[in-house]
Nucleic acid binder design. Structure first.
Lengths: 189, 189
DNA sequence: ACATTAAACTAACACTTGTTAGTTTGTTTG
DNA sequence: CAAACAAACTAACAAGTGTTAGTTTAATGT
């Protein structure tokens, strides 16, 4: 296990605070206090508050993009691809619960990286809905509005960060299985 | 149609801004500007920024509480009750999209009303999970983890505010039907 | 032992925050 | 017309904001 740098520690603690109160409500003095130092000392390690948010959100967003690109290019049924999407969300959330909170709630404060983020998100959603539409055409999936299916799936998966920390008795594989049951078997034909 | 008072207008505009940037990132000067007045003038109508948030969130939360109490006391099947919950969310969200955003994202900034809010939320979730558990016992609902079913349903329904404004081609009844199909038929036995 | 460096510190900055006090303006009511 | 009122205004406040500059401290490598 690689030792965490001070910069990484700052970003990790920032993500935790951002989850609890939101980016705008967390001050640099709050963050410093949580680390046991003075606010000015943070700037030996990071460039700006904005920069912390960018680092947190963009890295998670790129993980999703990378994961989705692998899924869409795999040679399996569309239903299997949807199951892989469930697993992708569970795994990323398990490794970075707090980052998921920022991604969900504070993306609008990204400023100069906002366009890039929205591009990644659109790309992701376009791939997702394409899988669903192909699944319907291939009679793997119920004749149902594909946008509603995607909305229902993605909002549930995106909100996992709220819920997973409270349910540590689930291992991630159990959770994937249960979510697949609820989210996918229901639309299965 | 009753004429909107100035206070109501302020709260309505505030809810819109809170949805876009979050409570903490919206300043009283932002709010005043959106209304075409100076920040100090707001205080002829409202007591504090806090008070605006309280008004927005608590009124929506109480609507949910009231709606849920009616549902749980009705004499219908548990599946029907779940369908009524879907309709409850769609209707409240249709009437107060921006308020739903604050409820979801800014409840932690409620301060002295925080305890009361969390009490309402717990009450709501307890009722919801009870319906699901009874549905499973009565063999109306699949043998599936009730907490996951509730989590999936409620996070989807709570996120409707993100999505309904973009899909005005749906009337609310269509939306209720489609969501019921995706959320409930899947767990139906 | 000495030079280097990582990482903390103090002090201060320019600006923004929510809010108050006191005043002005225009409209409604007696 | 005069009184009352709703709702805007200007000016200012104390506290808090992100950030910079310059300095000190303690550990590391030669």
């Amino acid at each position: 296990m690689k030792q965490e740098t001070r910069k990484e520690e700052i970003i990790r603690v920032a993500a935790k605070l951002f989850k609890e109160k939101g980016y705008s409500a967390v001050t640099m003095r709050d963050l410093a206090k949580a680390l046991g130092i003075k606010a000015a000392s943070l700037y030996n390690h990071i460039n700006s508050k904005q920069d912390i948010l960018k680092t947190i959100i963009i890295s998670v967003a790129e993980e999703f993009t990378y994961g989705m690109d692998k899924i869409i290019n795999s040679e399996v049924s569309n239903i299997s691809k949807l199951k892989s999407i469930v697993a992708l969300h569970v795994n990323i959330t398990a490794n970075n619960t707090n980052g998921m909170a920022s991604l969900n709630n504070d993306w609008m404060h990204l400023e100069d990286k906002l366009d890039y983020y929205m591009q990644l998100r659109d790309h992701y959603e376009n791939n997702c809905i394409q899988i669903i539409k192909r699944g319907i055409l291939a009679s793997e999936i119920k004749e149902c509005n594909p946008e509603i299916i995607m909305f229902s799936m993605l909002t549930t998966l995106r909100s996992l960060y709220l819920w997973m920390p409270k349910k540590e008795d689930f291992n991630t594989q159990d959770l994937v299985n249960n979510l697949t049951e609820v989210l996918i078997e229901g639309i299965n034909k």
